[in-house]
């Protein structure tokens, strides 16, 4: 199989080396992202250990159905992204483009659900401040963390939607060669990290105090 030369960039002479370098660099970036979200999770852990009961009471106010539906949507988007990456490697252009498109649709669906959820949270006065709905001070800490963590996650997700959308459109217009292109693999890895972060957030935000 000859390598498509138009995705090869200097200083690499072989595509396999370029791919390895790109994947390695992205994993280093993902490790730093893990520590970035890790800081927020640590803050959550410390405050939760200090206020175990209040965190459970506050967690009960989140919307379990939006949270669960969004988890299912994001898991499915990771599935279509994984198929897209596999298809790009096996030179199946159509399947790659369709799966990239499906991933974008699922990503947008997540953002729409999140928007409805945020609107409901605002209606229920769950934004920390003067008119906050719960009387315990630590409940405001829980919701401050809720807003920061989910918003930062949503920003990451929006960047992912942009990157995948770009690949899908440029791939369909044949402006980008999808076959064996390191960009597809790197974008897929980033998207899966966004999914991983959500998987960790889900039990910490939505599953508390439901029994």
């Amino acid at each position: 199989m000859n390598t498509p030369t138009d995705v090869l960039r200097p200083p690499w002479k072989e595509l396999s080396r370029q791919r390895e370098a790109a994947t390695f660099a992205l994993w280093v970036f993902l490790a730093s992202e893990l520590l970035f979200f890790g800081g927020l999770l640590l803050l959550y852990a410390a405050y939760r250990l200090a206020n175990p009961e209040v965190f459970i009471t506050a967690g009960r106010e989140t919307d379990l159905w939006y949270g669960t539906a969004n988890t299912a949507v994001l898991l499915t988007s990771s599935f279509t992204m994984a198929v897209a990456a596999g298809a790009a490697e096996a030179d199946m252009r159509r399947l790659t483009i369709w799966c990239l498109g499906a991933t974008v649709v699922f990503g947008l669906m997540f953002l729409v659900f999140k928007g409805f959820e945020y609107a409901e949270d605002i209606r229920k006065h769950l934004v920390p401040g003067e008119s906050f709905a719960l009387k315990e001070p630590a409940a405001q800490i829980f919701f401050a963390l809720y807003w920061i963590m989910t918003a930062v996650h949503a920003i990451h997700l929006s960047i992912g939607v942009g990157l995948i959308g770009r690949l899908a459109i440029f791939g369909a217009l044949r402006r980008v060669h999808l076959r064996e292109n390191p960009q597809v693999e790197v974008t897929a890895l980033y998207w899966h990290l966004v999914d991983v972060i959500w998987i960790i957030l889900y039990p910490l935000i939505y599953l508390m105090g439901r029994s």
């Binding site: 994993w27 280093v28 993902l30 490790a31 730093s32 893990l34 520590l35 890790g38 640590l42």
Partner: peptide, 13 residues
């Protein structure tokens, strides 16, 4: 690279 991320996260916690 992946293990390094988890390692430093564990130290942080």
């Amino acid at each position: 690279a992946a293990a390094a991320g988890v390692f430093w996260l564990a130290i942080l916690f």
